[in-house]
Design a protein around this nucleic acid. Structure first.
Lengths: 231, 231
DNA sequence: GTCTATACATAGATAGAC
DNA sequence: GTCTATCTATGTATAGAC
């Protein structure tokens, strides 16, 4: 089960329309828009535009007039898709969280060896963030807009992914495959390196580093630590 | 020249008052406040409060009425320290950039060996971000508020620090002390790990990891790569 | 379902008394 | 130098025609 970005991309069927459709189906009872096709089309535009403006100037700095102009929908129309700017934020935030964790959980799955599991996890995370970069960036940068309670949930997501790696490493230590005193710190370092990829896209893009290359680098970088005295 | 946090902290004399004083002296001709002692005192409060609110809710989300309330100065008084909210941002941003780069440049200095240089650079960066965490966080998270032109300058600062490490590593490769094909990627990874320290303080704080421990970890982590087949 | 026009609240910024 | 009161612009949100 050799995994590369091209394959992942091809198999990754989730489009913005799919995400919008899923949301519409789940919530159509509470929505004033009834016609599925237009609802999905417009939801997709609204989300896309919001992500794009927010990632440029910030969600707070985006006025609904901006959103109206850039999405092509009027102010009035916008308000039939959400009841307040705050709700718009929550919708996007929740959809994003859910889809991302779902894809991760589904994909970071059964590999034969622990080494493979580790590599696989790193690649999946990077590949996904490559395809859903604007979501990742949005979720990272706009946590401020959440309430204290909601923030906690958001932080748990951070810990969740970190923990996936921590468990792999812990198990590897038990089985004497990996060697380190800092399983948790290494997991948190992995997380930081994975995040750097989507937080600094401008940098890696301008240096023409592909996601494959970066993945290889991270894997090597981490393994050099876990397999230290073993080679 | 053994470097540890306690020593660095003790030697690090730069207080918020000092920073405010420096700014006042440089700009007093353009300022309506003339009395040095009050100017400095109030500047310090304004900056501190702005950093604190911004790092919690975001600069955009902070209204000047918020700032007025939490700083204890009236709206009118605030406007004798800056002429617009945008200027307030630029002042803090510029002061922050300048002081941080200055301290870094002054401190990341002459060590005997390249290995020491590398370790020293990592420690200084972490120690400084420990003492000026709110500035670092602010500068990282609020770049959005800058114009396109100013953003470029800000990105150069990122590259600047990265480059310090890149040069050390490059030289180390030449002298066959370090071994890697990815000098630049490793530098960028170092940067990411250093940033993680102040971007996720809540995490490291709750795990009771000290800055010393984290520094040691980063150094080990990086050296495991650079000294790979050497041990 | 979508538009335009408009109500209402809050933001940034200034004037003038103390 | 600092305050309160106020102006003006802009933002969110709604009403009602089409």
């Amino acid at each position: 089960m050799k995994l590369n970005f091209e394959k992942f991309k091809k198999d990754f069927s989730l489009s913005l329309e799919d995400i919008s459709r899923e949301y519409f189906i789940r919530n159509k009872d509470n929505m004033s828009i009834k016609k599925e096709s237009t609802a999905i089309k417009n939801l997709a535009t609204i989300i896309q535009t919001t992500l794009s403006i927010s990632n440029d100037r910030g969600f707070q700095a985006m006025s609904l007039r901006d959103l109206s102009k850039e999405s092509g929908l009027s102010l009035g129309a916008l308000y039939s898709y959400f009841s307040s700017k705050e709700e718009l934020f929550r919708i996007i935030h929740n959809i994003g969280m859910d889809t991302i964790t779902n894809v991760l959980v589904q994909n970071i799955a059964h590999c034969n060896t622990l080494e493979e599991k580790l590599r696989h996890g790193i690649k999946i995370h990077l590949y996904l963030s490559e395809l859903m970069g604007d979501w990742f960036y949005f979720l990272y940068m706009e946590t401020k807009n959440l309430s204290k309670e909601e923030r906690k949930l958001s932080l748990q997501a951070e810990l969740y992914t970190e923990n996936i790696f921590a468990e792999i490493i812990q198990e590897g230590i038990k089985k004497k495959i990996f060697q380190t005193k800092n399983a948790l710190l290494i997991s948190s370092a992995i997380k930081a390196l994975l995040q750097d990829w989507y937080l600094k896209r401008w940098k890696y893009l301008s240096r023409k580093i592909t996601v494959e290359e970066y993945a290889e680098f991270v894997i090597e970088f981490v393994e050099a630590n876990l397999l230290k005295n073993k080679k």
